[in-house]
Design a protein around this nucleic acid. Structure first.
Length: 500
RNA sequence: GGCGCUAUCGUCUAGGGGUUAGGACGUGAGAUUCUCAAUCUCAAAACCCGGGUUCGAUUCCCGGUAGCGCUACCA
């Protein structure tokens, strides 16, 4: 059996926003290509002049790179089947359109958009199928040619033949449409730009695409494209249509559902590998039906179109968070510290550029608070008690009252505070704590809780073992928001608590 | 309206003519820890409805319902 090399493509239009649904489509194409050792092509579908902007292509590519995908051919790196930007392929489309006109498989249409829209409305109102009447189909080709030559604006329509269009969808199985529900579609607009259903077929064919993996909103377009393949005498590729991603309200996931673009997930501090893993699981499952944590290598090794679900899936931020927590724990602290910079800078805690000693200290900060984070965007909140300590402020009144009403706690602190001197190490702290235990007879929670409150101003937080060195080292750094050392903290505490 | 696609715990899913319908997120309980979290253990939680086919349907077929998509000189 000779198997032609698999070639797939991701073909976004550059709108400056990569929706997770598209990201998943790209991911599935990429996984499929890598599994088969085939090629993954990035093609830019920018035939809609009104919606496309060149700068969007740059950010699109950046987003895709951030997401962790790479491609073998594309608008940015070229390849043997270029150009990979539809706006640069107009001559090619025009050539095939002319060919179809000559073969009488397509014809010029002089109907104005206004006229067509009016007819559409009439049909809709009458409860009829709003499809093109085929009026210009009956025109004599010579007459049409003359009118075009005379400068009359004309679109080009494909003649849809009688019969049904069907294909064996790799996800949905046999799918078929009756030809008579499709009006003759426009393949070239009157402004000379190709229509999507025409350009996509020519590009896929010329670029040797073997498998078209795309969103299921294209299912209804497929018969039209099949008609183009037929008219051109080309074999159609295999099609695989992926289900839609929905929001919690079960409508198509869109911007009003919150974060839905790759950029927004990056800004949220979601790790790309977490998003990849999550999106792979949305509509696809591994052969054992159980594994959830999958590396890229694991994903590639197992990826198969056989295990794709047909039904739409609701995007679940909670599960993404779970995966993100997992991957943050896997990540090196050095990487996380670097990623954390913009979040802490935004809170005013640190300033960019960050000197190396600060970066090293940030690794400890991230390490301390990591277990409390879903995403990096929660970092500033989680590390607030490191950067902000104001025991005398009104916001701490309740905590202080609660603490000071406890005589045992007062006893611990009265003994503890004088013992602390600069610099405090965790080892020294343990020694003091041990002595406190002997002296007061308090241990465990009763001993550590008051100390925690005095030192951090909060009743809960990361382990003191991690916080103490962070306070001490942080106090020596020159940060825009000074980090108070343990002794500084206790001095302030004493002032408003009257203890020690 | 027409055409198409879809339907298993709240969510993502596995499975498939006879199963205690499996896993994961989330939720609840317990264990552990100086607290929160993390971690571990346990628990609750599902086959849309109605017909058929069959000894037997959650699984196959048909219908209904619901959701979504397409019905453009958008992609």
């Amino acid at each position: 059996m000779t198997e032609t090399t698999v070639r797939v493509r991701f073909a976004p239009s550059p709108t400056g926003y990569v929706h997770v649904g598209n990201a998943r489509t790209a991911l599935f194409n990429w996984l499929f290509a890598r599994y088969h050792g085939g090629a993954f092509v990035l093609r830019i579908e920018d035939t809609d002049v009104e919606r496309s902007e060149a700068q969007y292509e740059t950010s699109l590519i950046e987003d895709l790179r951030w997401f962790g995908l790479d491609w073998d051919e594309g608008s940015d790196k070229g390849g043997p089947f270029g150009p990979y930007r539809q706006s640069e392929r107009k001559d090619i489309y025009a050539q095939y359109a002319t060919e179809l006109i000559q073969q009488r498989r397509a014809y010029y249409c002089f109907c104005s958009p206004e006229q067509l829209e009016a007819e559409r409305q009439v049909a809709l109102k009458a409860g009829r199928q709003p499809r093109y009447s085929g009026r210009c189909r009956a025109l004599e080709p010579e007459e049409s040619a003359a009118r075009v030559k005379a400068g009359e604006p004309a679109a080009i329509r494909l003649k849809i033949p009688e019969g049904a269009f069907s294909w064996d969808d790799l996800v949905h199985g046999l799918t078929s449409f009756s030809g008579d529900v499709i009006g003759d579609p426009i393949i070239v607009r009157s402004d000379g730009n190709p229509a999507y259903n025409f350009a996509v077929v020519i590009d896929d064919h010329l670029m040797g695409i073997t498998h078209v993996i795309r969103g299921d909103d294209h299912i209804s377009n497929t018969p039209r494209q099949l008609a183009v393949y037929q008219a051109l005498g080309w074999p159609a590729p295999a099609f695989a249509h992926l289900s839609t991603i929905l929001g919690p309200d079960r409508t198509r996931l869109s911007k009003r559902h919150g974060a839905t673009s790759l950029e927004s997930f990056r800004e949220m501090g979601v790790l790309p590998e977490a998003l990849r893993n999550y999106l792979a699981l949305l509509g696809w499952s591994p052969a054992d039906g159980k594994t959830e944590i999958l590396s890229d290598a694991g994903l590639i090794a197992q990826f198969s179109l056989d295990h794709i679900t047909k039904s739409p899936a609701v995007f679940d931020q909670e599960k993404l968070n779970w995966l993100n927590r997992h991957y943050m724990k896997q990540a090196t602290m050095a990487r996380l510290a670097k990623l954390s910079v913009p979040f802490l800078a935004r809170a005013g805690y640190i300033a960019e550029p960050v000197p190396n000693p600060t970066l090293a200290w940030l690794e400890r900060v991230v390490d301390a608070v990591l277990k409390n984070l879903d995403t990096l965007s929660q970092l500033s909140e989680a590390s607030r008690l490191i950067f902000e300590y104001e025991p005398c402020s009104p916001s701490h009144q309740a905590i202080m009252d609660h603490l000071l009403n406890d005589n045992g706690a007062r006893e611990v602190l009265t003994a503890f505070i004088p013992q602390v001197s600069e610099p405090l190490t965790y080892e020294k702290f343990r020694e003091i704590a041990k002595a406190m235990q002997k002296q007061t007879g308090r241990k465990g929670r009763e001993l550590f809780h008051p100390i925690r409150v005095a030192l951090t101003g909060a009743e809960s937080g990361p382990e003191l073992e991690k916080l103490i060195p962070i306070f001490e080292e942080g106090s020596k750094l020159s940060l825009p928001h000074h980090v108070k050392s343990c002794t500084e903290r206790l001095r302030e505490f004493r002032e408003c608590a009257g203890i020690g």
